[in-house]
Amino acid sequence: MPCNQVPSIRRHKAQARITILFALIALALTALPTVSFAGTDTAGNVLATEVDSTPSGIEGDLYWAGQSLNLDDASIGRDIIAAGENLSIRDCTVGGAVRLAARTIDIAKTAIDGSVTVAGQHVVLNTGSTANCFYAAGETVALRGSAKSAALAGDTVTIDGTVDGDVEVWA
């Protein structure tokens, strides 16, 4: 983000990004059926629900919706896009970005090449996790891992990790 922008413009851009994230999540939750559907398309993308087994070794994107997702020791080639009540990602590698919406989000010991954009009640990028950027909105937001930049909004925001660049906080 350019340094010559006034804070109100930066704040407006961050709020616009968060609004777009919520709109996309609402669209995904209404558009995705509640029945189980797991499958890999010709591009290597996987569509899954919580009824499906835990995906691993996905070449493309992972699209997931359900109540609880526990993704452990998986390799995702590109992006993770998920919505649910509880989302936990542990000991994973992600070649792209992570976009999540849930009540509770916990990302631990995970290497993410792209950005992390999340919205939830309780959100944490835990120790041992790395991301290019960490954008988070929630009641409680914690950055305990490391990121190159961060934009965090919440009632309580905790930074107990490392940010190599810019940090914006609304708390």
Rank of each mutant, 00 (worst) to 15 (best):
M1E: 04
M1Y: 01
C3S: 14
N4M: 02
P7A: 12
S8H: 06
I9E: 15
H12R: 15
K13W: 10
Q15V: 02
A16Y: 02
R17Y: 01
I18T: 11
T19K: 15
F22V: 03
A23I: 02
A23S: 13
I25D: 11
A26H: 14
L29M: 15
A31C: 08
A31S: 15
L32H: 00
L32R: 09
V35H: 13
V35E: 13
V35K: 06
F37C: 10
G39P: 07
D41K: 02
D41N: 15
T42C: 08
N45V: 06
L47H: 10
L47S: 10
A48C: 11
A48W: 00
A48H: 01
T49A: 05
E50Y: 02
V51L: 09
S53C: 01
T54F: 00
P55E: 08
P55G: 09
S56T: 13
G57C: 09
G57L: 10
G57H: 10
I58Y: 03
I58C: 06
E59P: 04
G60D: 08
L62T: 02
L62S: 05
A65Q: 09
L69H: 01
S75W: 03
I76N: 06
G77P: 11
R78Q: 15
D79K: 06
I80N: 03
I80S: 00
I81P: 00
A82T: 00
A82K: 01
A83Q: 06
G84M: 05
S88A: 12
S88H: 12
I89T: 05
D91F: 07
D91K: 13
C92H: 01
C92Q: 05
T93S: 15
G95E: 07
L100H: 01
L100V: 04
R103Y: 02
T104V: 13
I105E: 06
D106T: 12
I107V: 12
A108D: 07
A108Q: 12
K109M: 06
T110Y: 04
I112E: 06
T117G: 00
A119G: 14
G120I: 10
Q121D: 12
H122S: 14
V123S: 03
L125M: 15
N126D: 15
S129A: 14
T130G: 08
A131F: 03
A131P: 05
A131M: 04
Y135N: 10
G138D: 01
G138Y: 00
E139I: 10
E139S: 13
G145K: 04
S146G: 10
K148F: 03
K148Q: 14
K148T: 10
K148V: 01
A150V: 01
D155V: 08
D155H: 12
T156L: 09
T156R: 15
T158L: 13
T158I: 13
D160K: 12
D160Q: 14
G161T: 05
G161D: 03
G161M: 03
T162L: 11
V163S: 05
D164A: 15
D164L: 12
E168L: 13
V169P: 02
A171G: 15
